[in-house]
Design a protein around this nucleic acid. Structure first.
Lengths: 197, 197
DNA sequence: GTCTATACGAAGATAGAC
DNA sequence: GTCTATCTTCGTATAGAC
């Protein structure tokens, strides 16, 4: 479990990032939110804030991949259903105040901080490819898997932004239903989502 | 055209917002980018930065609605093609460094600044409804129009974030093609996009 | 690994002159 | 409407002790 203080800062930063964006995720806020010790900040993150943001982006990226591995859907619709359910829980678990931490990094990072932008981009690519791989595994063609995975990622990221702003889950559910239905037709089966973690 | 200085600040803020997010869109940056006079800042925006952000959000919202009115697509696929082409030009016109200014507000605004969040949400709703209205006008059913408009908005917002981070237009084009194709099947005709402004 | 103290800069905001 | 201070707050970052 490595340094628990370090990990506390990272998970705290992830929560703040998803709720308030990158600039509001200051060291002070992270410390206040987590109770982590101030004195060890630059001991754990010699690279300063950019390093904390980078580690947090990586952590969030892997956390989603891990969550996907907790279930094993057997149909394309199930794969998409699990994916959308994961994001739905981010909204509902935060009173619709949180979104995607990686998107926050992508939106808030300027042309300087090129490394952060690139990192966010590679996390998005990982997510897209992981989804596509799972769709293929349950019988969808490679071509369609790539397409549906990409569309699902983009639509979810957008739906998070839109629904968070609207403080309503309605549009999110409609988008999710459409994506699931796209997985149901022409891929493998017509089953509904079989995972909701 | 009202106060030109005021408008200069708003359009400048819009550009910065789309490129670097809300917190990086400081007064200093807006002034530096536009050459607008510093002394008149709180004359034009007595409410401070939040007021500038709010005005900018409204402006960007109306600017897209106005751009949609510049063409008159005659098929669902044409409507979606025009919409995606508008967003594509945001990416290509900025070397893939700009995204959606309204999304930047939505992501960066904290639970305080509730008015800004609400405003961003209402702009998204306006865009969604404007798209749906146009789809209906060219013959798509009300139900399908609502769905496709919402999916297109969400997917475009997400694609902007993802592709900006990846510094590649490839995924954007694939998402746009899928959306257009969803408009082509079962709506009106099968025509390709007929607007690219 | 953790602490305190502090330097430094940037940003929002206000006051008062022109 | 515009200018020039100026105030205050906050955030990053460093130094050096424990």
């Amino acid at each position: 479990m490595a340094s628990s203080t370090r990990q506390t800062m990272i998970t705290g930063a992830a929560a703040l990032l998803a709720r308030r964006g990158m600039s509001a995720t200051s060291f002070s806020e992270v410390l206040a939110a987590t109770g982590a010790p101030r004195g060890s900040l630059y001991h754990h993150f010699p690279g300063g804030k950019d390093e904390l943001m980078a580690e947090t982006t990586r952590y969030v990226g892997n956390r989603l991949l891990g969550a996907l591995d907790l279930a094993d859907p057997t149909t394309p619709a199930g794969v998409i259903g699990q994916f959308t359910a994961l994001w739905r829980s981010v909204l509902t678990g935060s009173e619709l105040e949180a979104g995607c931490a990686v998107a926050a990094v992508a939106v808030d990072a300027g042309p300087e901080q090129e490394q952060l932008v690139e990192l966010a981009g590679s996390v998005f690519a990982e997510w897209r490819d992981a989804l596509a791989r799972r769709l293929e595994r349950v019988g969808m063609s490679q071509e369609r898997s790539r397409d549906l995975a990409l569309l699902s990622l983009a639509a979810m990221e957008g739906a998070l932004v839109v629904c968070r702003a609207q403080r309503s889950i309605e549009d999110f559910d409609r988008v999710a239903a459409m994506l699931v239905s796209l997985g149901g037709s022409g891929g493998g089966g017509g089953a509904a989502a079989d995972a909701h973690g």
